[in-house]
Design a protein around this nucleic acid. Structure first.
Lengths: 238, 238
DNA sequence: CCGGCGCTACGGTCTGCGCCGTAGCGTCCA
DNA sequence: TGGACGCTACGGCGCAGACCGTAGCGCCGG
């Protein structure tokens, strides 16, 4: 059949290797890592990792930025992060229904995590729900729009929406693997995440995508988004 | 890292084999095929195909139905079709920008095709646009809703929405690989497709997912959905 | 200028798995 | 009931590719 499923097979094969899957999964939070860091993450030697990175880059899945003697690799586009989360979401769903014990990390990830450059997990969904419920955002078939009220809110909130020139979709749904629902991606998702970081409402951790909600974040989220997360939803320690 | 990216690698590896990718791509239109038919499609011997089908079934990507001495394989869920189209969409987008000559088949596929059990391509998007523009459907963050007006329209249109009991989402966006926009999936997409088939507005072809828009379909679509497809958008021959 | 470091290129090894030939089981028809 | 057909199980072949050791190329700091 046509070229389409050749491409499909190639893409699948790229994701299909455990080392490469580790690399891609590590980059889903949007951060850039050096080749050596990724080799640690992937669990293989730097030489092998280099080959993997070359393949992924040639397929335009990764973008690379030289900085001195380091090479920083990151996902080439947010859509790729969405697709990966989508695949994980579906794979977990299709998994044989053995009830695995939710690990502590998994629980933290389910609560709130970064997905490329926006927020996922229960927190991400709660924010999306709030914005939609109050009419600030309408998700359309090709990504959705921000209403006039929404623009006003974002301005008050201190989240500058850069609408000039960027061909990036303002607002796009991204399927959540833990909650099996959609959260906000696109420029809106990015600017919300950035603002929450600036306000120190959430903090990213060193080596995982899980986000911790701070005490001030708990108050702020409740006030601004009417997001009332039960106490047990906030990290106990830290 | 956690179990999530092991699952990711497994899923990728399943899709990553050319024979299996062919099989999956053939099933994306929602039809069920026998093992032998799929072996022809995949281009490998029946024994090999049998192994592939077993793997895909064990991973819950395919569902199988025995009928006499035949075994009909189909995708286990519409979400899988969405994910596959999503992957193709992204892979084509990431492709090196060599301008390939659009083949006749590709053009037919871009015009209108079936995607699992709903309509994709320019036609699918036009219908989605129309329904959203007139307020029959509002796509929400977790799939969208049908308005009261929408329910009225569907009833008049003769498309029965089965809301009882089914846990299937009524309305869900599905990314279109040719147009790079969202079209309607879920129960709404299915019932629309079914109705268009019943009305003989579109006809499926034997061995491809491309749909041909009939003359009566051209009129009906214009009348009901205000979809005005230019003449050259309708199949010249046949 | 030299040594250390990050990264990549190349060659060889080895495992995994895709593939088919043969064979066996169940189903349908004459 | 015998034979054709659809499908799957098993076993051996062969190849792609993942992996690492060695080596070479840029970039940095002293």
């Amino acid at each position: 059949m046509s070229i389409a499923n050749l491409v499909l097979a190639e893409l699948g094969a790229l994701i299909g290797d455990p080392a490469r899957a580790n690399i891609l999964a590590a980059l889903v939070d949007g951060r850039a890592f050096t080749a050596t860091e990724l080799s640690m993450i992937a669990g293989v030697a730097p030489q092998t990792t280099s080959g993997h990175l070359a393949k992924l880059t040639q397929a335009n899945l990764l973008a690379v930025a030289k900085q001195g003697r380091h090479r920083y690799y990151r996902l080439a586009s947010p859509q790729i992060a969405s697709m990966l989360e989508n695949m994980v979401s579906l794979a977990i769903g299709q998994l044989p229904p053995r009830h695995w014990r939710p690990s502590r990390l998994d629980e933290a990830m389910r609560r709130a995590r970064s997905c490329y450059d926006h927020i996922a997990g229960r927190l991400g969904i709660a924010i999306a729900d709030a914005l939609i419920a109050r009419g600030d955002i309408v998700l359309g078939e090709d990504g959705g729009e921000i209403t006039a009220a929404g623009r006003r809110f974002f301005m008050e909130f201190g989240a500058e929406l850069e609408t000039r020139g960027s061909r990036r979709p303002l607002c796009r749904p991204c399927l959540d693997w833990s909650e099996r629902r959609w959260h906000l991606a696109g420029a809106v998702g990015a600017v919300l995440y950035r603002r929450c970081l600036d306000l120190k409402w959430v903090e990213r951790s060193r080596d995982t995508r899980a986000l911790t909600i701070t005490a001030s974040g708990l108050g702020g989220l409740a006030e601004v988004f009417d997001v009332r997360l039960a106490e047990h939803c906030v990290a106990q320690s830290s």
